[in-house]
Computed example of a mutant assay.
Amino acid sequence: MTDKLTTQEIAALKARAHHLHPVVMVGQQGLTDAVIQETDTALTAHELIKVKVAGDDRAERVAISDALCEAVGAQLVQHIGKLLVLWRPNKEV
């Protein structure tokens, strides 16, 4: 994984992500292999994505966020309610 993002980089990524819609949904089954694979595919295609996490337990959503970022080598840009913004630089650049 890359170095920690700077405050300016985070602000720029948040601005880019503002108009995006969630492309991955984490359902009641939680973090499955299919969700990890779909997240990896979406990050490869787009670098910056939104993920919607079902459930009302904030601690559980934070745990899912941490585990998902670890599994796909992404960085959490923002966590607002049930939405996560994930970023992973394109490996081909």
Rank of each mutant, 00 (worst) to 15 (best):
M1I: 01
T2P: 14
T2I: 15
D3V: 12
D3W: 13
K4Y: 11
L5E: 10
L5V: 01
L5Q: 08
T6G: 07
T7W: 03
T7P: 04
T7F: 09
Q8V: 01
E9Q: 15
E9T: 02
E9D: 12
E9K: 03
E9M: 05
I10L: 13
A11R: 02
A11T: 05
A11F: 00
A12E: 13
L13S: 00
L13V: 07
L13W: 05
L13K: 08
K14H: 04
A15N: 01
A17Y: 06
H18D: 04
H19L: 07
H19T: 13
H19N: 10
H19Y: 10
L20K: 14
P22N: 08
P22I: 07
V23W: 01
V23M: 10
V24P: 09
V24G: 01
V24M: 01
M25T: 15
Q28C: 03
Q28K: 14
Q29D: 15
G30K: 04
G30V: 00
L31A: 01
T32G: 00
T32Q: 06
T32H: 06
D33F: 04
A34K: 13
V35D: 00
V35Y: 11
V35A: 09
I36Q: 13
Q37D: 14
Q37S: 12
Q37L: 11
Q37F: 04
Q37I: 07
Q37G: 00
E38S: 09
T41E: 14
A42C: 00
A42Y: 03
L43C: 00
L43F: 00
H46P: 12
H46E: 13
E47S: 08
L48D: 02
L48S: 07
L48F: 02
I49W: 10
K50C: 13
K50S: 06
V51N: 09
K52C: 02
K52L: 09
A54N: 14
D56W: 05
D56G: 15
D56H: 12
D56A: 06
A59K: 14
A59F: 15
A59T: 14
A59G: 14
E60Y: 06
E60H: 14
R61G: 10
A63S: 13
A63Q: 12
A63F: 04
I64W: 04
I64R: 08
S65P: 02
S65R: 12
D66S: 11
A67I: 10
A67G: 10
A67K: 10
C69D: 06
C69A: 05
C69Q: 09
V72Y: 06
V72I: 03
V72E: 07
V72P: 03
G73I: 06
G73C: 06
G73K: 09
A74N: 04
A74G: 09
Q75K: 10
Q75E: 13
V77G: 02
Q78P: 03
H79A: 13
I80K: 02
I80G: 11
I80M: 09
K82G: 15
L83D: 15
L83Y: 14
L84G: 12
L84V: 04
V85Q: 08
L86W: 05
R88N: 11
P89A: 06
P89F: 11
P89H: 11
N90K: 00
K91W: 07
K91V: 06
E92A: 09
E92C: 00
E92D: 08
V93K: 12
V93N: 12
V93G: 12
